[in-house]
């Protein structure tokens, strides 16, 4: 009875610390979830005269992947994106972040191009508005242009299967879209 309190306190501490060990301190919850994606007006990566805006992507849910040729973690997820892009039902849009046209296009020529379209953001302006802090990042944006999900760091098949694929299915299944 005398040791009940210390043992209880120790037990609580153990649980709290154990849970804390499993948390990712680099994960920052995005305040943008369920908010409209920011407006932008930027050129396409493959055509400087082709202006893309937020409404260019309205009408269907998209996967917006923030990448750069200088980002080594992007290379690890690239084969997965290429594989996913073979499914025509999945629309992957690239946001080429703080890159040059030449480097980005060479990268796509060398490793395959999974992107239906690429937004060229050399100054990182749209990246800033999206709260990008560590490329690669991946957003799911619904048909109305509302951000539904954000993934920081490289995509893996597990993350795709468990988080993004079900969300996309849900967004596509919605009536009236």
């Amino acid at each position: 009875m005398k040791y009940l309190a210390p043992v209880a306190i120790f037990g609580v501490l153990l649980v709290v610390l154990w849970v804390g060990l499993k948390l990712d301190p680099h994960y920052v919850p995005s305040p943008l979830i369920d908010h409209p994606a920011p407006e932008f007006s930027l050129s396409a990566l493959d055509d400087a005269n082709h202006v893309l805006t937020k409404t260019s992507f309205h009408g269907r849910p998209i996967v917006l992947n923030v990448w750069s040729s200088w980002c080594s973690a992007c290379r690890t997820e690239h084969p997965l994106l290429v594989a996913l892009s073979r499914d025509t039902a999945i629309e992957i849009v690239g946001l080429n972040y703080k890159d040059t046209r030449e480097d980005a296009q060479r990268n796509l020529a060398d490793h395959g191009n999974p992107y239906r379209q690429n937004i060229f953001d050399p100054a990182g302006k749209l990246g800033l508005d999206l709260g990008v802090y560590g490329v690669p990042e991946t957003f799911v944006i619904d048909a109305e242009g509302v951000i539904r999900h954000k993934q920081v760091g490289p995509l893996t098949p597990e993350i795709w299967q468990q988080e993004i694929a079900p969300l996309l299915a849900k967004l596509k299944g919605r009536p009236g879209v």
């Binding site: 919850p29 305040p31 943008l32 800033l128 508005d129 709260g131 802090y133």
Partner: peptide, 8 residues
């Protein structure tokens, strides 16, 4: 800043 990156 908070609008983009949250309270963090």
């Amino acid at each position: 800043m908070v609008k983009r990156y949250g309270d963090f």
